[in-house]
Every structure is written in C-alpha cells, then in structure tokens.
Amino acid sequence: MKLVNKKGIFHAQFKTTQGTTKTITTRCTNRADAERVVKESGLKDLELAARAGRLTQEAIGYLISGRKLTLQKALEDYQEWMETRGKSPRTIMNNVHYIRSWITAAQVEALPPAAITEKHISDWINNRESQTKANSRTIMLAAIRSFFFFIAGKGWTPNDPSKLVSVNYKILSHVQKETTVKRVFTAAEYDGLVKATDGFWRFAIQASRELGLRLGDICQLEWDCFRQPGYITVWTDKRDKRVSLKMSDGLAQAATLQPVAHARYVFPEERDIINDPTRRAYLSVSFTRICARLGLKGKSFHCLRHTFATESNAEGRSLTQIASDMGHSSTRTTEGYVHKI
C-alpha cells in the first residue's frame, strides 16, 4: 500500500484479493494527515491483509462514506436514493421489505457491504425449507440486486455478489415452479362489472379493459392526460414509459363526466391511497369485494389488463403493438398476458 498525490489530494493505493489495484481518496491535502487517516482506518497493512484474504472492507467503507458503514445503514441510504429516483412507493416498500428480511435472516446487519459473499444471498434465496414460489424468489433476488447495484455505484464494494446468484429450480417442487395463471373476464362478466359500479370504479374498469392501463396509472391520471381529443396519454408509474392510447367514444364520454375535485388530478382521493404503502391494498380489496358481490371468483383488477391483451391478440393485433400500448419493454412480457379464449 502506498500514498499517491493526485491533484493535491492524497490517495491510498493497494491491491485487492483479485490482484487489481484500487485507489481510495483520503480527502487530505498533506501527507501527514493522509498517513494519520490511513493508520486510524486500519489501512496500513491493507495489501498484506488482502493477500491473506482478510481485506479490511470496513475501513474501505469508512474512507469512502466518511462513517462506519454497515448493511443496515446502507439500506437507509438505498431507500432515500430510490425516493430521489422517483420510484413508486410500492416499489420502494417491497424492495426495502425484501432486503430487510434478507439482512435479518442472514444476520448480516452489522457487516460492511464488501464483506457479503454470494453465499450470504444464495442461502436465503434458495432456502430449501421455504415454500416460496420461484417467481417470488426471482422478485426477492431482483430487490437484492438493485440494492447491490446502488452499493457498487457508491464504491462501497469492489464486487457485486448478487450477480453470482440465481434461483435454483432443482430444489423446488412442481407447485413452486408453476406460476399463478391470471384469468380473463368474459364479456358478460365485464358488462356486469360496469353496470354494478359508478364513478372511479366504473371508469377504471373501462379504462383497464379497453386500454390495458394498470390500476396505479389510472389513479395517477391528470386532466392534462386528456389534452389530445379522443386520446389518453400516460407516463406509466411502473416503468416511466409514455403511452398514448385512442379511447372509444364511450370511454371518452366517461372521462368528461368525472367531477373536477382537484385542479390537477382526476382522482385525488384514489391517488392519495395508491401512493400510501400502508393503504394501497384497500383498492385491491375493494375491487375483490365488487367481484364477490357479482359471484366472480379468482379475479383481480390486473385480470382486466390480461383481458385487454388477450382480446387485442384475438382481434389480430401484433404482440409488438400490444406491448407498446401496455408499456412493455419486451414482447416476451406481453406473451404472458395473452391467453387462449
């Protein structure tokens, strides 16, 4: 390990266990202060420690972040970062929940990020005793990968162990491997839903069935989304994709009939609910109760989106066109929404 002066700032330069050279700033402008920081941080024998497989990653994290860094503290910073990126409250809540569950189960709260190996992650994702389905494990792993993408971007770890982890299908049962099949609404069921509802729910049901919009995007609608006559233009909440969709005359009329309760948002009350992680489930529960009153079992609001894709495909529209309308980045995703009818 040696100190290198770069543009008036001293940096600690050392070799990692992989043999690569890493340079970390000490934030000091004179050698004496830099040597003191190196000594207090435990970096003095860093290169020897690396060769012995004992990298003082906690010291590295301290130098970069200016504090003693643990996974628990990194998670707090990650949550703040997600918020500044404009991620939806639901995405933030779910990711933080999965990451915190992993940290607790793996008992790594006090470890620095760079001390985590792929085994710490894989043992949780591929827990043989868990009845968690493959799809859910994939989502859990995606949350952890997002976390380590942030950590690596901050320079708090030289490697990303999550990239070496995948869901092990060999340990899963048939039931765990199978995905839950979404069911589409029949024409009669859809008509029943429209007749049984009014206000927000009637418009939401029509918009999702006719245009494939997500419940969250409908709740977030602004009056400006209807600026172009006969069309609705939406920036999707989940992927930040712009979609411009032609409305039927009936849906366009339904939009004009909505009362103006807010200068900007069409459904301010539902928007407040969908953006509150502690209350957003209320909307799904409300729709489930509407279905129950009509004797519709095994259906969710998202099934309307599947209905849109399925019927669009049956009408001869290409998967590329349907994917574009639904805000999908790949037609492979869209394929999962198209069912035989």
Rank of each mutant, 00 (worst) to 15 (best):
A142S: 15
S101Q: 12
K241V: 11
T84G: 01
C225N: 15
K39H: 00
R214V: 05
N30L: 03
A59H: 02
Q321T: 14
R54D: 06
R293T: 10
G42P: 00
Y282C: 02
S41K: 00
E189K: 08
Q57T: 13
G19C: 05
K238I: 05
G199T: 06
E178V: 13
V285L: 11
Q13R: 15
A187G: 01
Y169S: 14
L71A: 05
T104C: 01
V165Y: 06
D217I: 02
G316V: 09
T233W: 05
K68C: 07
Y282H: 10
A188Y: 00
L141Y: 02
N30C: 10
M82A: 12
T307D: 04
A207S: 09
Q13M: 10
T16A: 13
K133D: 11
A142R: 12
N5P: 01
D33A: 15
T334A: 10
F267I: 09
R317G: 01
K154G: 08
K2H: 08
V4T: 02
Q79M: 09
V266P: 02
N159Y: 11
W156I: 08
W201K: 06
W223Y: 04
H120N: 12
L46C: 03
G42S: 01
N94L: 14
A314L: 11
P158A: 11
W102H: 05
A254E: 13
E40K: 10
L55V: 14
V96K: 04
R128Q: 14
I232W: 03
R90G: 13
R202D: 00
Q79Y: 01
T307V: 06
A314W: 07
